[in-house]
Design a protein around this nucleic acid. Structure first.
Length: 270
DNA sequence: CACTATACCTGCATGC
DNA sequence: TGCATGCAGGTATAGT
């Protein structure tokens, strides 16, 4: 599910429900997701109130006095606020019990997500070395252009490198490249500054638009059914191999880059 | 150093 | 119907 817009949609969805709530207990049903769940989650967190909910890259940070709870949704993770007596299903791995009779539940069938702890004043190693936020002032065409010099990797792989810019995953990389008219295979180091400006603008636009639409697959955090986001119907290329380009009508093609399906228009993207 | 392949895990669609 | 196969929105890490 989650690239930046889905994580941001999750952040906005849960913040008003968890902010100010005291964590009265923690229920873990697995010892580890992608990484072992650190002892502080059950040993230090309970008794503390949750403050702001931040997002850095695709991580959510639940602020408390002694430290931050880090949540990464991986490929299939979902966070929901539910009544405390909601039965746990097979993939409901962790609950933070709240003092209002509800709980914050992390479900993740594939378990590529993570639940981590960052002590106050420290920066977790996984948050170090990340590139700028794509919707911040630190991200623009010049940034992409500078980092890309001398790099021969395909621009789509470059764009999905979280050290270059965070939050851009397979869906939005494909969409941004289409908007910018850049072929996903083009070597990053051979793209002009002007075209990188167009690409940076496309990344911003597609992410901002997806957030306004509630992400591609996320929407409601209180409904256990989890209604879908509204961006899916607006995808230009992702998942549309063989279908006509919305701009020129040419059938879209797909290739594999770094193991990921990469859909593009052979006529509009060069 | 840049880059690629692999691994983690489950569920689902597809084809035989 | 059952079973094998391949694929899925992420990313650290081992290997070239």
């Amino acid at each position: 599910m989650p690239e930046l817009p889905e994580v941001e949609t999750t952040r906005r969805g849960i913040e008003s429900h968890v902010r100010g709530r005291v964590v009265t207990g923690v229920q873990l049903r697995v010892p580890a997701l992608r990484w072992p769940i650190p002892p502080e989650i059950s040993g230090v967190l309970p008794g503390n109130a949750i403050g702001a909910v931040h997002r850095r890259a695709k991580y959510l940070l639940l602020e408390t006095a002694p430290g931050d709870v880090l949540v990464h949704l991986g490929m299939s993770g979902v966070l929901r606020v539910l009544p405390a007596d909601t039965p746990a299903l097979r993939h409901d791995h962790a609950d933070l019990l709240l003092d209002d009779g509800r709980l914050l539940r992390l479900s993740d069938p594939r378990r590529f997500g993570s639940l981590l702890w960052q002590p106050r004043g420290e920066i977790h190693p996984l948050l170090q070395g990340l590139g700028p936020e794509p919707l911040s002032d630190g991200f623009d065409g010049d940034h992409l252009w500078r980092l890309s010099r001398g790099r021969r990797a395909p621009v789509k792989v470059f764009l999905m490198d979280q050290a270059v810019v965070v939050g851009v995953g397979n869906i939005y990389a494909a969409e941004a490249l289409f908007r910018a008219g850049i072929h996903p295979l083009r070597a990053a180091g051979r793209i002009s500054r002007e075209r990188f400006h167009a690409l940076a603008g496309a990344v911003r636009a597609v992410l901002a638009h997806a957030i306004r639409r509630g992400g591609t697959t996320l929407r409601d955090f209180l409904d256990p059914d989890g209604a879908p986001g509204y961006f899916e119907q607006e995808l230009s290329v992702y998942g549309r191999e063989g279908e006509p380009c919305r701009h020129c009508g040419t059938p879209l093609r797909s290739l594999r880059l770094a193991g990921r399906a990469s859909c593009y228009c052979p006529r509009c993207q060069h």
